[in-house]
Amino acid sequence: MRGHAFLVGTYHEGSSPVHRAPLWLKFLLVCLTGAAAFVLVDWVVSAALVFALLLLHLLAQLPASHLRRTAAALAPMALILGGWQWWQLGLPAAARIVLNIAACVLAAGLMTATTPVQQLLDGLVRASGPLRRFGADPERFGLTMALMLRSIPFVLGAFADSRAAARARGLERSPRARLLPVVIGTVAYARQTGEALAARGLGDADADADEEASAGEGAG
């Protein structure tokens, strides 16, 4: 099941201007695109935004397969949401909503495809540094966020696997056959990931904390 996890959100090595752009700039692009989705009211402007993001994908020299996979992942939701909005609000509004969502996905995809996970992790750790004074552990925060990003493609893959397995058994109309394996698989994946991190000592509190903990136990 995890084999699907590489289909979306993988970093593509390169030396394009987009790859070399600082992380804060890419993050700003994602935030501005997200904000624009609430502000833009004209589908022509939304289409222009999507076009601009596609140009950035070209500039980043990402393989065509990257866009194809993004489009394939987006298509079912765009069809359902677009159809519903067309019926409720008319074609221009439906087009605007779908294009705004596509813009957000393209911006986020551009950032993850041109930034190594480790760089994202470093950025998050740096950004959450000020929270240390409130007792937060930036390293753990960064690791948690990286794992969350990493889990999204897994869950998408689990849905695809479950759908295929249900179809193979002639159970494509059974919600239970399509959803239950996703829930079970996702929980198992979370446990497995947690165990792997524990085994590698990642996310462990500082080793010195062991002594404090055992001293505390003794005192208690």
């Binding site: 996970v117 085994a199 000592g201």
Partner: peptide
């Protein structure tokens, strides 16, 4: 855990990053 490394039967169980 800093001095003892642990490897699982299925290496995919312990590889958590994409590359």
């Amino acid at each position: 855990r800093r001095i003892v490394g642990f490897g699982f039967t299925d290496p995919l169980s312990q590889l958590v990053m994409p590359t």
